[in-house]
């Protein structure tokens, strides 16, 4: 932990020193203290918190929709072999389409509103979840499933007690990946389309020459990313305590 923090401290020191020593122009990279000061000033304004709120709302709604749809579609497609075979090539075609390629479509449909951000976020995050759930469903142990069948579990009970717990670690991986991607797309949509949020603030700061503010906002998006990842990890530890990736040493 100390080592990691000292690494971060070194990075901050470097960002302070490089512009001060004139290695890079302070016009393009203001010293870390300048960025921190700009961040402090911004944090005191209501508009900053509105922007953070806008970004997080778009992120949360988009992620929730993507996770719900991805889990539902993944369980359905994964559990029905015919559907799996039937949709495989479609999924492989649609999945690699970069979400940003849909920006013109989003603008066409929703203008610069929240809908545009959501379209991009949901599209990008959905595949992350879907693919993980498909892996998870395919990972069901045949012995566990035969055990459930031999005790005459209903089809629903087999989904509830065998398939779902098996898929859960994959679902969490999917959520963690989707949460990160959703933030990227939320900021991208705000930057490019101009829907309200941190991305829009970055774009405005850049075009008005407020370079320290621009950097401060970039730092904020980074902090949000870290917090989201930490939150997802904590949730994994909480809900997957039984899984070998979390449980650690086995006491025999």
């Amino acid at each position: 932990m100390i080592l990691r923090l000292s690494g971060l401290a070194a990075l901050v020191a470097l960002a302070e020193l490089l512009p001060r020593l004139g290695v890079v122009s302070p016009d393009y990279l203001p010293p870390a203290s300048g960025i921190a000061a700009a961040l402090g000033r911004e944090a005191a304004t209501a508009s900053f918190w509105t922007a953070v709120g806008d970004t997080l709302v778009a992120w949360a709604i988009g992620l929730a929709v993507a996770v719900t749809a991805g889990v539902a579609a993944g369980l359905l497609v994964g559990a029905v072999p015919v559907l799996r075979a039937w949709t495989a090539s479609t999924i492989e075609f649609l999945r690699p389409i970069p979400s940003v390629a849909l920006i013109p479509l989003a603008v066409l449909l929703y203008g610069t509103g929240l809908g545009s951000s959501l379209l991009l976020i949901v599209y990008a995050a959905f595949w992350q979840v879907l693919v993980q759930v498909l892996y998870g469903v395919a990972d069901v142990d045949p012995v566990a499933d035969e055990t459930a069948r031999s005790f005459r579990f209903s089809p629903w009970a087999r989904v509830r007690h065998v398939l779902w717990p098996t898929a859960l670690p994959y679902v969490f991986t999917g959520i963690r990946l989707a949460a990160a991607v959703a933030l990227v797309l939320a900021v991208t949509a705000e930057l490019v389309i101009g829907s309200p949020g941190l991305g829009a603030v970055i774009a405005v700061a850049q075009s008005s020459g407020a370079v320290p503010v621009m950097y401060a906002m970039i730092v904020v998006t980074g902090v949000l990313g870290v917090l989201i990842n930490v939150g997802a990890r904590l949730a994994e530890r909480r809900f997957l305590a039984w899984h070998q990736s979390v449980r650690g040493e086995v006491a025999l």
Partner: peptide, 21 residues
């Protein structure tokens, strides 16, 4: 299909028991 009143004990206990329970 699996008859009522029959129970099976499998060789692979580690896979037959549910680790999440």
């Amino acid at each position: 299909g699996p008859p009522a009143g029959m129970a099976v004990v499998f060789q692979e206990y580690g896979r037959s028991l549910f680790p999440w329970m």
